[in-house]
């Protein structure tokens, strides 16, 4: 039961989430006494690929071609599915992110292999293949049984962790046909966000709600985020009001985050917002209403006005860092 893991790169580089994915795939391979293969499409840097061996990746298939510069779901799925056959993979793993979700669903249908998205742990059994996933936006988990010989998984971010386990990496030349005519995605333009730290990568997130009163007060969020090296986020009403861009909206219908630490500032704690942050390791809530439901979800709470508490906290962290 060989394992194949799809390794996305960002302008040639990998991220911490990639190392978590490799750690996880290597652990499944160990659990099932099988081999783990990674596939990288496009121009990833050689020293980056070699780094993956630190987390237990034994075999790598790296296919370079300019056609992989822009994600075309149909073309990528075709290439990955050929690789599945080539390495005789029975379990194919993606990150539970934009790209992973887009490819895993197509691959599942192409291979008629059961898809379990948002898995949070190692498989509970091999035959039948049973694994745990999140559902209802983190409000529950379920054990899912896969009825097919092959399975496709997407791993929830920060659900497993990064584990070092150095092995020798073996570069494999795979006989894969690139059917470039499948590529129908034509890139016209790329727009980059200006955020210093990406919300989806952040270890710490500082998030604001309607308690901030207006966009002109957002500097208190940004200043705390700056001193912590954190990303900024907001609640749905804040993005709906246009105080902040919608890509910062965290919650059931926005982004689901799982950072090490989440600061909920002036956020009452609507069930939809809490669902989006419940996988955070620690939650610190600051709200002037002691009865706000956010305190039921938080580990630490401060009752106070965010406009006073946040600048004071930022100042104290700065002093501490000195």
């Amino acid at each position: 039961m060989n394992i194949l893991v799809y390794l996305e790169h960002w302008d040639g580089k990998f991220k911490k989430s990639t190392f978590e994915l490799v750690s996880y795939a290597a652990a499944i391979a160990k659990q099932f006494q099988s081999n783990v293969y990674g596939i990288v499409l496009g121009n990833a840097e050689t020293n980056e690929i070699e780094q993956l061996s630190k987390y237990g990746l034994e075999n790598i298939i790296h296919i370079q071609n300019d056609v992989f510069k822009v994600l075309d779901n149909q073309l990528f799925t075709d290439v990955i599915s050929q690789t599945v056959e080539f390495v005789n993979a029975k379990c194919i793993i993606f990150a539970h992110n934009n790209t992973g979700k887009a490819l895993a669903s197509r691959l599942s249908a192409k291979l008629k292999a059961g898809l379990v998205s948002g898995v949070v742990a190692l498989p509970e059994s091999k035959s039948p293949f049973i694994i745990r996933k999140k559902l209802f936006t983190g409000k529950a988990t379920a054990q899912v049984k896969v009825n097919t010989e092959k399975c496709v998984l997407t791993l929830s971010q920060n659900a497993y962790g990064v584990y070092e386990n150095s092995v020798a990496i073996n570069k494999i030349n795979a006989d894969i046909k690139i059917n470039a005519e499948l590529c129908k995605t034509n890139l016209k333009e790329v727009q980059k966000f200006t955020a210093k730290v990406l919300l989806t990568d952040a270890e710490i997130v500082v998030s604001g709600g309607r308690g901030l009163k207006g966009p002109e007060n957002w500097h208190v969020i940004e200043e705390l985020a700056d001193v912590l090296g954190a990303a900024t986020a907001c609640t749905r009403p804040v993005s709906d009001e246009g105080w902040r861009p919608h890509h910062e909206h965290v919650g059931q219908t926005g982004k689901i985050v799982a950072p090490m630490l989440y600061f909920a500032c002036g956020i009452s704690g609507a069930i939809q917002h809490v669902a989006g942050i419940s996988s955070s390791k620690y939650i610190i809530a600051i709200n002037k209403d002691a009865e706000a439901p956010i305190f039921e979800a938080a580990d630490y709470g401060i009752v106070g006005d965010v406009m006073q508490v946040l600048p004071e906290l930022t100042k104290k962290i700065k002093e501490f860092k000195k």
């Binding site: 599942s108 008629k112 292999a113 059961g114 898809l115 379990v116 049973i130 559902l135 983190g138 409000k139 529950a140 988990t141 379920a142 054990q143 899912v144 049984k145 896969v146 009825n147 097919t148 419940s278």
Partner: peptide, 10 residues
């Protein structure tokens, strides 16, 4: 292709 066999609350 898949079946939900057991649900749990956190």
């Amino acid at each position: 292709l898949t079946d939900y066999i057991l649900f749990e609350l956190p």
